[in-house]
Computed example of a mutant assay.
Amino acid sequence: MSLGDEPGSGGYGGTGQTRTRLPDGPADPRRSGRTSPRSLITVVGVVVLLIAAIAFANRGDGDSAARSGAENKPRTSTTAASGQKPPETTSNGIPTGFPHTQEGAQSAAANYATVLVSADILKPTRRSEIVQQVFATDQQAELQQRLDQAYSKEFLSKIGLDQNGNAPAGHTYVSRTAPIGTKTTSYSETAANVEVWCTGLYGTAGEDSTDPVTSDWFTMTLQLRWGGDDWKVASFSQKNGPAPVPGDSKASSADEMAKAVEEYGGFTYAR
Results as ranks from 00 to 15, higher is better:
P179D: 02
G228E: 01
P212W: 08
A52P: 00
P23M: 02
S157I: 00
Q139H: 08
H100M: 04
P246S: 05
Y187M: 07
L222H: 06
L116V: 12
G11P: 01
S175D: 04
A251I: 14
F236I: 00
K85G: 10
F236S: 09
P95N: 07
E189I: 11
T114M: 04
Y264M: 02
S209C: 02
Q223G: 08
V134H: 05
N111R: 04
G266W: 01
K232P: 01
D216I: 01
A81T: 13
P26Q: 08
K73S: 13
G227M: 13
G241E: 04
L161I: 13
S91Y: 06
G228I: 06
S82V: 09
H100Y: 01
G170A: 10
A110L: 09
A260H: 12
S82C: 04
W217H: 13
Q133P: 02
G16K: 06
L50Y: 00
Y12W: 06
P86K: 05
N58T: 12
S82N: 10
S188M: 06
F135N: 03
A109Y: 10
S36R: 10
N92K: 04
D248H: 08
L50Q: 13
V245P: 01
V43Q: 09
Q102E: 15
S249F: 14
S36N: 06
E154N: 09
G203I: 05
P168C: 03
Q140V: 00
L143K: 05
R34A: 12
W231H: 08
A251N: 12
W197D: 02
Q133C: 11
F155S: 05
F98G: 05
P99Q: 04
G16S: 05
V47K: 07
G104Q: 11
T78G: 08
T15Q: 08
A80M: 07
P179Y: 10
D28W: 09
E142Y: 07
F267R: 15
S32K: 03
A254N: 15
V245M: 05
I51V: 14
P29D: 03
A258C: 15
E189M: 11
T15G: 01
F218W: 15
Q144I: 00
R146G: 13
E189N: 15
S64G: 15
G60W: 14
A70C: 00
T114K: 04
L161V: 14
F135E: 01
K158T: 14
I94R: 06
G206F: 09
R67W: 00
G14R: 11
N164Y: 03
R127N: 13
A191G: 06
D208C: 02
S249W: 13
P26G: 03
T89H: 15
P242N: 05
G266D: 12
E6I: 07
V134E: 04
A251D: 10
E88S: 15
A167P: 00
L201Y: 05
V261E: 13
G266T: 10
N111A: 00
L143H: 10
V115S: 06
M1R: 08
A178H: 04
P74H: 00
P74Q: 03
L40S: 02
L161S: 09
S235H: 12
Q145D: 13
V194H: 08
